[in-house]
Structures are given as structure tokens and as C-alpha cells.
Nucleic acid binder design. Structure first.
Lengths: 141, 141
DNA sequence: CTGGATCCCCGGTGATACTG
DNA sequence: CAGTATCACCGGGGATCCAG
């Protein structure tokens, strides 16, 4: 990207700062949307749950066993958020012992690919990141 | 703890199917590493800062203006985290008014691609997500 | 089995003031 | 200009108990 003129996407903020110069503002609606999705993906548990569902439909307690570290509260909350965003479907079977199955929706499955790419980047570069951390922490002395 | 008392369960491994395309590290030490990277990317501010740095080196207060909503404290913290992970470089010029330039490292630039893919997914699907939310919230009545 | 409700701790985050 | 220090608030998240 050229440093000369930065792209002024849509800095039409109503209460834009008096910068005089029209700086590009990344506070576009799209930007917050992206940030929003990223926050969901970066959520501590969302990705774990999605990964567990990549193998097919799972019941509540199956997921609990798949992700031992998650608490019941957080699993419920995470599933609700994913369901609300249309990434996960929730199917209740009103049997005597209630049965609830969770599964990825097509939208949820479509999210797996870009997430997997990011995950692959992480796997490929975690060594460098950890090395950088070691150097940084060492220098902090 | 996950000391499940269940006996030898038959081969119903949760997610051990070999998709070949997606992540296959559901229970490796790498998993926490991936989660870690995802958390950084999903961090409220990290991506914004990285985006601002894609256009080239920027100084501290330039970044503050680029991201009006960020507080000084959070910008400092975010930059430190990114620097620690080797994603951003910090260059101090000991001039009379101190000058500090931040820039993406090659590692940081390499992260931009997978993040951008995820961002594109978000932009492409934010409509569906919001629609799903509207439906969900409506049903909650 | 699948959750909801409650209590409570801790850390992330903003606001503000100060410094080299 | 580029931070650091301090305070205060709030929500994330675990533990636990209860319900359908």
C-alpha cells in the first residue's frame, strides 16, 4: 500500500474529530462488523466448539467431554452465541431424557475454511512467535 | 479435571476423522498455541493496529489518530503485545522530541493474508450473521 | 441430560494525572 | 512526543446449586 494518500474509505463519522484533514477512519460499519466476527473467532471457546463440531453433530455432554477445560456455563453461553450468529444449529428431541444435538450450519462450515487457514498460519509460525517472546522477555531484564 | 470415569468407550473418537483440509490438531499442544494466536487476532485492538500499519511505518500518535477509539493505555499495551510476539517492530530515534516508529515485521505481514481472508469472509457474510441474529432475537420474545 | 440462577474473583479497559 | 502510574468499573468466567 502506498503511503502517499491513504484510502479514505468512508470517514463520514458524524462527530468526526476536528482533524481538519480528512483522515481515513477505519470505524466504518464494515470494519466493526469484521472486528465483531474476529472477536467471535478469537473467543476463547468458540473455535474449540466449532472444531469439535466439524466431525458432525454432537450432543451437549459430548462437547463437554471433547473440551474438558470448558465449564458448563461457558459451553452453554458459547453455543448460544454461535447459534445466534447462525453458525450452529440446535435441535431438541423431546424424549424422556432430553436430547439436544448441535451441528454446524452451512454458514458455520463456510467459516471453517478461513479459520483453518489462520490456524495453519498459527501452527506454522508458533515457533517464531514463541522465539520472539523469549527474546522480548529476556531483554526486559 | 477430566478424569472421566467412563470405561473403554468404543471408537467414537470425537473429532479424529481425517478431513485432510482442515485442522487436525484437536488435542495437541499446538491446539493451545492456535488458540493463543487466535486470541491475539481476535483481540479488540490488535487487528486495528495491524491494519493501520499495513500502509507502512507509523508513529505512536499517528496510530492514535488512525484509531480514534483506542485509549493511550490500550495502544501502548497492544503494541507491546504485538512487539513481544514479533509481529511489530519498535524503532526508537533518540532525538530531542523522542521519535518511535512502529512497523510490521515480515512475520506480521505474513499474518495479514490469512487475517484478510477471514476479514473477507466476515464482510461477505455479515449480512447473514445479522439476519440470523435478528431471527434469534425475535424468537426469544 | 440439559441447562438456568447465583455468588464471587480476577483481569481487561477506560479516565486521569504525571514524567523523561 | 511517548509513554508510565494509579484508580475505578465492569464483564468474563469458574464453582456450585437447582430445575425440567
Amino acid at each position: 500500500m502506498e503511503t502517499a494518500t491513504r484510502p479514505a474509505q468512508e470517514g463520514t463519522l458524524p462527530s468526526d474529530r476536528d482533524t481538519g484533514v480528512t483522515l481515513e477512519v477505519h470505524d466504518a460499519p464494515q470494519c466493526s462488523a469484521v472486528n465483531d466476527i474476529l472477536a467471535r473467532v478469537g473467543d476463547k471457546w468458540s473455535v474449540r466448539v466449532v472444531m469439535a463440531l466439524e466431525g458432525g453433530s454432537r450432543r451437549f455432554n459430548q462437547l463437554r467431554r471433547d473440551i474438558p477445560a470448558i465449564s458448563q456455563r461457558m459451553l452453554t453461553r458459547t453455543l448460544r452465541l454461535l447459534e445466534r450468529d447462525g453458525l450452529v444449529s440446535r435441535t431438541v428431541t423431546p424424549s424422556v431424557p432430553p436430547r439436544v444435538d448441535y451441528a454446524l450450519t452451512p454458514l458455520g462450515e463456510s467459516l471453517c475454511d478461513p479459520v483453518a487457514r489462520l490456524g495453519n498460519w498459527a501452527i506454522a509460525n508458533i515457533g517464531r512467535v514463541e522465539a520472539a517472546r523469549a527474546v522480548f522477555d529476556g531483554e526486559q531484564d
